[in-house]
Design a binder for these strands. Sequence first.
DNA 1: TTGAAAGCGCTAACAA
DNA 2: TTGTTAGCGCTTTCAA
Lengths: 330, 330
Amino acid sequence: MVDIARQAGVSVATVSKVINDRDGVAAETAERVRQIIAEMGYEASLGARALRSRKTNVIGILVAEFEPFSTELVKGISAAVDGTGYELLAYSGGDHGKAVGWERRSLSLLSGTLIDGAIVVTPTVVRADSSVPVVAIDPHTGPSGLATVDSDNFAGAKQATDYLLALGHRRIGFLGGRSDLESARLRETGFRKACAEAGVEVDESLILVGGYRPDSTDAPAHDLLSRPDRPSAIFAANDLSAIRTMEVAQSLGLRVPDDLSVIGFDDVPEAASAHPALTTVAQPLKQMGAAALGLLIDLINGTPGETHLRLPTHLVERQSCRAIPVDAQR
Amino acid sequence: MVDIARQAGVSVATVSKVINDRDGVAAETAERVRQIIAEMGYEASLGARALRSRKTNVIGILVAEFEPFSTELVKGISAAVDGTGYELLAYSGGDHGKAVGWERRSLSLLSGTLIDGAIVVTPTVVRADSSVPVVAIDPHTGPSGLATVDSDNFAGAKQATDYLLALGHRRIGFLGGRSDLESARLRETGFRKACAEAGVEVDESLILVGGYRPDSTDAPAHDLLSRPDRPSAIFAANDLSAIRTMEVAQSLGLRVPDDLSVIGFDDVPEAASAHPALTTVAQPLKQMGAAALGLLIDLINGTPGETHLRLPTHLVERQSCRAIPVDAQR
DNA sequence: TTGAAAGCGCTAACAA
DNA sequence: TTGTTAGCGCTTTCAA
């Protein structure tokens, strides 16, 4: 900025005024400064600028990691941000969410200086008292005081389980999600509800935790599939763990769907390219991202509307589930 | 930080030293300060911190927009960053790359202050003289002086065209990419080369530009498909335009692959979930992201190795292409 | 071992 | 219309 000022023969204050379209600058001077800025390809440093002014026009997206789920949300937010005048800064702490409180850390790292507001994805811990407006997607269990967006996890899980039951499955394994997340809790509740309604007793030894992550799914999937009375179907609480479950099954010599039916949750793009293509419950991830952005912008503008948006799910039938032959049913 | 200092009864300078593990602080004092920091959930503002010190341990990923291509790269970078000690900041300017020079703008916005280095995706314009190390993925035409990562676009395009040719197609439409990108140029060259080798003359009126974007693909796809002598197959320069081409075909009453074969390029996850599932040339996007990160970290550490990495492509056969019945061949 | 003071690149209030 | 000055939250000499 000093260079620009020197080149133009004015003070840095004047340059700043030109950049920010403040008035009190002669049209001629402004033009000259603009010229030089363009020539030198200068852009005010976000860090320094934000330090001093309050508004940055940047919205932060805080994720533990860029994996299929969070990136689908990001795609939705990105599509929706077009035309709003905001820019997007998606931030992932280095530890991939392994450290408790990563979202609080990232939030204070960025808020107050760099961003006007934040969308935080699957937070484990949040304080509603952040210095900037925050919207949570798929939040943790319990009240947070935050504006949130999620999908109807209960209904979706029930739908998945009903589908498996309708195919004749009676011994159904359940690979739960991250127990600190509301979504994981609701999916298990939906599963149990469907079983209860169908008069099928759930075998508690068939309920394990996959934690939404492929690597933490390995062990429980192995457990479930290597027992003599293994389930004929598995409902994995998200697509990534469902896909890993299919891989584990295949490594054990089981064919999906012939020997084992598997159903997931989310409908990330990877579900369609799995082998076999994964039957799953779709969350409208792109819409959820867009909705979160809408909520956040309202919050920033001080015109809060809804504080909680819940979007519907639907079943997507692909190739990973099969009806049990009638004579094999118990 | 002032609050912390007051609480601990020390100066902000001391707090800063504790945060940055500088020595010259009594173990006891340090412990007390750390305690309070933890209690208050404080984290130093990235903007302010970076303004003063040089190293931020943050790597920037600059994209025009979060769409399937760039997000696949981001996933690859994210997976590879684990354990390196770096964090990731993916930035998308608001205009979705419509403004020329968005990457230069984003770069100077972030560099010098917020990030230690940047990976820029499909840049149109770059100066190698940035204040931080930069690696380009899928760069623009012509020399840039930048370290780059790409895939073998020429071989991939030839492979795709050979495949179509082998299926008996002789009238093949080509929907090119963004003409400023090296990849688009190479894909067209590969297409022409394959035709030439097969002794098939290319009809220049069948070569149009889709620009890698669904919306800019609509018109040329319509053009190609509504002419009486429409091609029997279309090679679209990336998956997004291929998928849109299939949609346009279907809206025109053409069945894919029965009436029209379509092949894409990239193999983004969306290709597998298209209807019909898209046959395409796969780029190893995740590996490309990981490779770019490796290159960049080398650059940051001042131990530059390779300056240009080219990864191989391969054909992924799905359901969008069909052999032409022999009697229909010309 | 500690803290005062300067300054990173910028914006905002005010004075000239 | 312009420039001077102070200060955003932090790190870093350097003196106490």
